[in-house]
Structure formats: C-alpha cells, structure tokens
C-alpha cells in the first residue's frame, strides 16, 4: 500500500495530465455533434454575460471620449449641412418624380414586389480569441427569436450585403460564421450574366471569397467589377443579396470550370451592426 502511494505521488503530474487530456477528448467528441448534449451551449450562455458586460463597458468609454471630440466637429458640419439641405430639397423633388415613373413602369411589366423579411438588428460584441477559426458574437440570442442557420446581412456603403449565418445560439448571444470562412458555401449567381456557382471563403487570401463551378463558357462574358449575388437555390440564404465583386478570373486547364476571386461587398473589419433574417413577412 505504502509503495503504491509513493508511486502515485511520483507520477502525479503525468496521471493528472492523462486525466485532463481524456476529459478534453471526451468533450471534443461530444461537442462534435454526435450526441444531443451541449455543455458548450450552457457554458457559452453563462460566460457570454461577461463578454456583453465588457463590450458594453468599453463601448461606453469609447463613445464618451468620441462624443467630446465630435461636439466641435458638429458645429462646423451644421453650417455646411444647412447649405447642402437646400440642394437636396431640389433633388428630392426630382427623385419623387422618378419614383412615380418607376412604379408605373413596374406595374406595366407586371413585376411583383420583392418579399420583405422579418429581421432582428444586432451589434457585434466579440470576436474569435484565436487565429484559426473565424467567427464573431452578436448581442442577440434565443430570447430574441434567433435560431441556428438564420442568414445574416448588413448594410454598408449603400449595399445590402451577405455577412454569413448563425451557427450557435445561446440565451443572450449568437455566434456568426462569416462568409469569408472557408467552411461554408453559398449558392451564388453573377448578376448580369446569370451564371451560377458556389462561393466560399478563400483559404489562401484573407478577407476574400472564391467562386467555383462556373462554366468555362462564361469567361468571355465576365469582367472585373461584376457583381455576384446569392441565387437562393436550395439555400438558407434568400435570393438577390449582394455577395461581392469579381476581382480576378482564373481559367485552369485541369478544371472544367472557372475559379473566380471575389472581393466581398461587406468589409468585415468595419462590421459593427447587422441584421439577422428571422423569417418572411
């Protein structure tokens, strides 16, 4: 007994390490999705409260500091804006006339109104702690009706662009996997030429997308700067949402399709507010 006790003491570190590694492997196996237990969801729900608190505190401090600087800028801008207002009032009159004309033309072509979606607005509060995975956390969760696999969009520079989809939901937060991650795919279409393909994150270039399975016949019709949108075909993503612009086209001889590099419409490094599409109206 005494010798056994001494041996255990001698190998305490190694035994402890083995136990911890076994526990880690069990957790990874369970978390891989084969079983319906989700300790991660429980833990994420609890610890995400601290993320929200830290994010709110830092946002409050940075907003306060920024607001002091902005006061001086605002006075100058106010004067400039008054002048601009007069110009825009004239333009608004022209816009209303054009809008009415557009409505009349659409009626003549018997185009139906595009379906609207219900959405939940959210703010990005946290990012991935490491450098391998690509995701971010928003401040809305299951209590606001967010569910797994809901598509996420954002408005930037006048475009409604596709951001990604929801992959994890806890009570108060949700985790979004962005389009630029190479593990997800979006059924896409070129806006002008209507050729279809699959878009996913480029594993070699950061913040870039790649479109595959576009017919080689399309090469002569494509140009840099052409817009790519979601096709909505057998996809969780609705049709017609901007994905990006063509940045480069490769015609590999060993493949039967093109490889198109796409610059995302959404600048993910500037992404702050977004919309989670929760269903159709």
């Amino acid at each position: 007994m005494f010798r056994g006790g001494r041996n255990i003491q001698k190998y305490k570190n190694s035994i402890t390490l083995l136990l911890l590694l076994c526990l880690s492997l069990i957790l990874m196996t369970v978390n891989s999705g084969r079983y319906d237990i989700s300790p991660k969801k429980i833990g994420t729900s609890f610890f995400s409260i601290f993320q929200i608190s830290a994010s709110r505190a830092s946002n409050y401090i940075s907003d306060t500091i920024n607001s002091i600087n902005k006061l001086e800028q605002l006075k100058t801008e106010h004067d400039i804006l008054l002048e601009k207002l007069k110009i825009y009032q004239r333009r608004e009159r022209d816009f209303l006339e054009l809008k009415e004309e557009n409505t009349r033309l659409k009626e003549q072509l018997e185009l139906t109104q595009t379906s609207d979606y219900k959405f939940e607005s959210a703010r990005v509060i946290a990012h991935e702690p490491g450098n391998i995975f690509n995701s971010f956390v928003i401040d809305k969760g299951s209590t606001k009706g967010i569910e797994k696999n809901m598509p996420v969009i954002a408005y930037q520079d006048g475009f409604q662009g596709l951001v990604g989809k929801v992959i994890e939901v806890s009570m108060f937060t949700s985790r979004i996997i962005p389009l630029i991650d190479n593990s997800g795919f979006v059924a896409a279409r070129l806006l002008d030429t209507r050729y279809e393909g699959l878009v996913n994150g480029d594993p070699e270039i950061q913040n870039s997308l790649i479109m595959n399975y576009v017919s080689k016949n399309a090469a002569k019709f494509l140009n840099e700067g052409d817009l790519v949108i979601s096709s909505g075909l057998q996809s969780i993503y609705p049709e017609g949402i901007y994905i990006g612009r063509i940045r480069g086209i490769k015609v590999p001889e060993w493949q039967t399709s093109l490889v198109i590099n796409i610059e995302p419409i959404i600048n993910f490094s500037k992404l702050e507010y977004l919309l989670v599409l929760t269903g159709e109206k």
Partner: peptide, 30 residues
C-alpha cells in the same frame, strides 16, 4: 502539475468563447 491545471481550465474557457470544439484548447494548453 499547476501548469497543466491552469492550461486545462484556461483552454476550456477559451473553447466556450470561441468556435473551436469544446476541449480543443483545453487539450493543447494542458
């Protein structure tokens, strides 16, 4: 001994707040 314990618990916390599988960083940090 203390190092592997710190590694395990800190890794577990990182896993809860990231997209990595639960136990991934716990395994490595241990």
């Amino acid at each position: 001994f203390k190092g592997e314990l710190l590694g395990f618990f800190s890794g577990l916390l990182e896993d809860l707040l990231s997209m990595s599988p639960l136990g991934f960083n716990a395994f490595i940090n241990s």
